[in-house]
């Protein structure tokens, strides 16, 4: 019994260490969000009746999202009002429970507002949904972004 314990002990430690290493490798940080994030769920606000499409960003894509977010300048003015029917923008929900709203060339993080010049961040995030979202909905969103660019 005691021998089994000695054998299981190091194995469990190894698993725990790999687990921690894995978490460390998957997590990404952002000075804007102020906490390490292990994942994000993107919701594309486009439908009135049906559920809006959602997909997950992890690993490299999550890190890229946070890097792009940190690079955005503060915005001075409020975003232009969005239409109500059709593509309206994105909501990104992070692993620590925080949410950001993206649309119309602005990113809202709590009370702060960042400027998404040329709507590049928004377009990049929409593009990450290519494998998960109906192509027509995605193209409608990209068309709307490009129209109001």
């Amino acid at each position: 019994m005691a021998r089994r314990k000695r054998m299981i002990g190091p194995a469990a430690l190894l698993v725990a260490a790999i687990g921690l290493l894995g978490d460390w490798a998957m997590a990404a940080s952002s000075k804007r969000l102020g906490a390490e994030q292990t994942g994000a769920v993107v919701t594309m606000n486009i439908y009135s009746g049906r559920p809006d499409p959602t997909w997950t960003l992890e690993g490299g894509r999550l890190a890229e999202l946070l890097r792009r977010l940190d690079a955005l300048p503060e915005a001075a003015a409020a975003p232009p009002p969005a239409g109500a029917l059709g593509y309206r923008g994105l909501t990104v929900s992070f692993s620590d429970g925080r949410e950001i709203e993206i649309g119309g060339g602005r990113v809202a993080i709590g009370a702060a507002s960042l400027e998404d010049r040329g709507r590049d961040l928004e377009r990049w995030i929409v593009g990450t949904g290519r494998e998960s979202v109906d192509a027509r909905a995605l193209d409608a969103a990209l068309g709307q972004i490009d129209k109001s660019k």
């Binding site: 486009i46 439908y47 009135s48 009746g49 809006d52 109500a84 029917l85 059709g86 309206r88």
Partner: peptide, 30 residues
């Protein structure tokens, strides 16, 4: 919205009201 979605409007006192998805209810069009 052909192939994509549906939407409802409701007749009210002096207008038609609607609520597009998770956005606020309103009585104005696009």
């Amino acid at each position: 919205w052909p192939g994509e979605d549906y939407h409802w409007y409701r007749h009210q006192s002096n207008c038609w009201g609607h609520k597009p998805g998770s956005t606020p209810a309103r009585n104005t069009d696009e």
